[in-house]
Each structure stands twice: as C-alpha cells, then as structure tokens.
Design a protein around this nucleic acid. Structure first.
Lengths: 218, 218
DNA sequence: CCACATTGTGTACACCGTCCACAAGACCAA
DNA sequence: TTGGTCTTGTGGACGGTGTACACAATGTGG
C-alpha cells in the first residue's frame, strides 16, 4: 500500500539544493500518480521527472529506463491491490461455521479485487499490463501488509476452504487460476468492457453472481 | 476473418503510379501484421505507411489518426476471433441429446476463444485493448462469417442451452458476462500471466476444467 | 478542355526515450 | 584544510513518434 495512497506531490518543490534528496521515491510517486489516471501508457519518464522538478536524464541514475520505472509502479499497484483485499478480509464479520467463514473469506478476496479494479482502474490496468518481455518472477514489493501478494492471498483463502472441509482436496490444485480467471475477467469487463456503464448496484449484483458461480463450480 | 489471414505484403511494392490504389486496405493489413507480433502498442502509424510504401501523412487521408487505425485493426482482430469460434463450432461432432449438443456448443465457443488467444496473442491483446477513451459502440466489421461478433456467438450458444432445457431461463440473463469473464481471464493468464509457460497439455487441461466450472456454476 | 475534388508529398513542430560528456556537490583520506 | 574520487543532477543531441499545414499530382464531372 506504500505508494498508492501517497498523493502525488503536485508542487514541484523547486528545490534549492543541487541534490534532490529522495529522487527515486519522488519519481516512483509521480509514476504512480500518472498510472492512476491514465493507465500504464501514461507513465511517461519525462513527465515523472518534470513533476519531480528535475531534468529528464536524472531518472537514469535511479532506473535503467522507462521500463524499470513502470515495473516499480506495477509492483506498487499490486501491493495496493493486496491491501484492498486485506481490508476486505478485515471487514468480515464472523460466521457460524468454519466452513461458512472460509467461503466468506474467498468471496472477500474476490470482492476486494473487484472493488479495487473499479476504484482504481488506472492502477489496476497497470498492475496487469502485459509488457511484452516482462520478467515473470514475482518482484518484491508486491505484497500488502500481511506480506502476501494478491495471488498468495487467494491461495491462502483456498487453503482455508480445504482445511474447513468445504473444498475437496482433489480440487485444490491450481484452483487459484480458475477463481482468478473469473474475477479478473469480470473486472476487465467492468472497467472498460461492455459492462462499463452498468449502475453500481447492478455491477455489485453481477459480481455476487460471479462469485456464486465460482463457489459452486470450483 | 478478412484481414487477419491476409499476410502482410512484406515487399513495399515500390509503385510507379502516383496513386496507391488501395491504400486504406494496405494500411489496415500492415496494422494487422504489426498487431500480430507486438500487440496494440506495436501498431505504429509511420511504420504502417512505410510498409505501404507511402509517406506518413498519406495515412490521414484514410484514417483520422493512429487511434482510428488501431480501431480498424481491433475490429479485424475481433472478426478473426469470431471466425476461430465458428470453426470450432463447425468441427463439432453430433451428440446424443439436444442438451448435450447445446452444452458442447458452449464449450466450443470457450475453446475457440482460448485457442485463438494462444495462437494469436498479439491480435488477441489488440482486440481487447483498453484504449482510454474508446467509443463503446460495437463497430461494424467485428463479425465472423456467420455475421455474429464474438459476444453474440456466445449469447447464441447460451440461448441454445435454454432452448434445450439445460440452462434454466431464470439464469440466462447476463449469463454471457459470467462465461466471458471466466474464459477471458484464463486467456490472459495463459498468454502473459503466470500460466505462460505451462505445457500445452496442461494448458488444455486447465481450460477444460475452467469450462467445467462455468458449466456447473452458471 | 478545364475546374474541382481526391489523394499523396514536403516541411515543420512538439513530444518521447535514451546516449554522451560534463558539472556540482558529498565524502573520505592525508 | 586540502585534494581526490564517487554519486547525482545538467546540457545537448539523436532518432523515433503523432500530427498540422501548405502544396503537388492525379482522377473526374461539366
């Protein structure tokens, strides 16, 4: 959640010192702000340096190039998504049985995902942008407060369902991919697909229906 | 299916006449070729004109700008996707009952979608690229041979299931969004998500499992 | 045959990512 | 304190992009 909530320091501080002090951080924050409204394509190196009150080339002291800045922004976006999931989990009230609780946790993961996609579409698209040649290793800095990244949070919820006995162990393997597919696909439809202009209430309804499908079909 | 199969005329024909003859078409084909290997970001106006053997500004006689060229490419990609679905449907062998047949049709739609995403990832990503301010109206030229675009093909399959009595009419409404979500999400995971390096066999297996989930959970 | 509409050309601008040489300050040893 | 070296920001440049404007070459209808 580090960068995503930190507002873009809108004023280029017009520093007096030659050194900036924390340029890398400033560039990252600017990049996040750019991604927030405009998605991955909007995170432009020169604009980030402009906002940091620095000449374009200064960025190269802290990032190998635009791609690396984008990667850092991406990590921050994933981290923010993880936090959104965690906060949804935290807001969960207790259920009667452990099985119900485990199921509710899975739904909370999905709901947090959908909520984040709608609240921060720019960051969401940045988090899942398909850079043609991206290192697939999960970079550090993508986790939330719990130390788990979004995928791991989903996995943990599924593990909980197995433990509670509401998901047969035989169906556990790779189940995160099935659940993730459904929720991610709906998120795409909602933020810039045909479901874009659905009323919030209807949007929520179809989200719930999708989670029903996952729960029933997993 | 018009443009997607037409190979990029790799040789800039070095025309002798002042007029090109069919520049709009040539630009579109070049754009499709660019999208095929490189995705939406790779469809670059100047490069398209270069391949057409023409000066950059000539493009503006046929497209309002890069965005409009991209839109045309997108339509061609959607059309190719529709064709992939149709060919999957065509390859279907008859089933015992109308219910089984209707279910098999839905699966074929999904399988065609996944197959296309893997065979033509560049076009696939172009088809579903999130251009920040895209007119959401479904443009013409997105259909396959049947005259239906991908979404309509899916809708038709679901209608068939209702008719055959294997999908309760009460669950029909908006069901395409649920099914589409799941399949689209998996496609994303497969073409540039964590499932990228899965062996083809395993890829197919998880695809089938996802379709199971949809069928069961719808 | 000639005016006119269409379509491709030439030139220009602003913006982008990135490379190179250089300057300004920090920092450490003598 | 002095001086050297490392780090970090600056200045200038190059090739790439999209796009606007004026102009030239060609087709076309009267």
């Amino acid at each position: 959640m580090r960068g995503a909530t930190r507002a873009a320091t809108t004023s280029p501080p017009a520093r007096s010192t030659y050194r900036h002090g924390d340029l890398r951080h400033a560039l990252l924050d600017a990049g996040i702000a750019l991604a927030r409204d405009g998605g991955p394509d909007a995170v432009v190196l020169r604009e980030a340096t402009r906002r940091a009150g620095v000449v374009p080339n200064a960025a190269y002291r802290h990032f190998a190039g635009r791609q690396e800045l984008l990667l850092a922004v991406r990590a921050a976006a994933l981290s923010a998504l993880a936090s959104a999931m965690e906060s949804e989990l935290a807001g969960l009230r207790r259920r009667r049985s452990p099985g119900d609780m485990a199921r509710a946790r899975l739904r909370a993961i999905g709901a947090g995902y959908l909520r984040f996609a709608q609240a921060e579409p720019g960051l969401f698209r940045t988090a899942f942008t398909a850079s043609d040649d991206l290192p697939e290793t999960v970079n550090p800095g993508t986790a939330g407060n719990s130390g788990l990244d979004p995928f791991q949070l989903l996995g943990a919820a599924l593990d909980g369902m197995v433990e509670a006995g509401v998901l047969p162990r035989a169906r556990r393997q790779r189940a995160e991919y099935l659940a993730w597919s459904a929720v991610h696909g709906l998120a795409m439809l909602v933020i810039d697909g045909p479901l874009r202009r659905l009323a919030p209430a209807q949007r929520h309804a179809i989200g719930e229906r999708l989670l029903d499908m996952v729960e029933k079909g997993l």
